[in-house]
Amino acid sequence: MTSDNKQMQWIAHAALIAFSIACVVPFLLLVMSSVSSEQTILKHGYSFFPKEFSLSAYHYLWYNWQSLGRAYGITVLITIVGTSVSLAMTSMFAYPISRRDLPWRNFWTFFVFFTLLFNGGLVPAYLIYTKLFVIKNTIWALIVPGLLMNGFNVLLVRTFFVTSVPPALIEAANIDGCGEIKAFYKIVLPLSLPIMATIGLMQSILYWNDWFNGMTYVTDSKLFSIQNILNRMMTEIQFLSSDPNMSTSASETIAQLPSATVRMAIAVVGVLPILVAYPFFQKYFVKGITIGAVK
């Protein structure tokens, strides 16, 4: 048995190290290009050992520090608020439909699944959010539309509940006089920390990386999130450098725009904070194993 175990360890480490290298190397290339000089990249190409170092890309971003700082603040705010509310709503919706005894259970599951397959598109959603709820150019615009809860997460959590929350436990609690809502947060939630951490991570990535809501529902630049700004820079370069009509007039603007190295710096600036925050979630992945003790 021990040899069996050891062999498994070897295989696991070998496979994961190989895959990890495949993931890290490109990221290193990204970081190295962001600190290369523009000329080096255009002349000699991307390299792990750039001939000439330069922080000009980060200088460019630094010029915009005022808006960047503010945007970081907004991003952190929407990520925290959005993820918390999202976790609450998702688990509250998922738990009842995970219960095999819930009347209309299949209908509700389908109700959720249907939203994953069909959507009305951007225009009607925009009409509803701006006309009925008037959230254009408010912080809600960055939190609510599309992101707050998605069917995918609901069904994922539901599936987790089905497999990992023994119905007997709930019935026992009920018999002990513990109401459904109390049972939910006293028993079900603690049991589901691993999935909550997963969903929490996914939601925070979603909020952190979202630029679409900002582009759609926000025109006031004070409310731009970090990804809004980064995405704006990206699309601008692509747009300007490819529209043959506009550029005679705008070529001066093009030349001032960031290019190769800044794009890389933008990516680094966008990704780093979430990497830093990641270990925070990780605690719970491992914790899940020991939770059996609660039973």
Partner: peptide
């Protein structure tokens, strides 16, 4: 939320 965010816009 789903009615507002997903079902209503389906008129689109």
């Amino acid at each position: 939320y789903m009615i507002i965010n997903n079902y209503l816009p389906m008129f689109g």
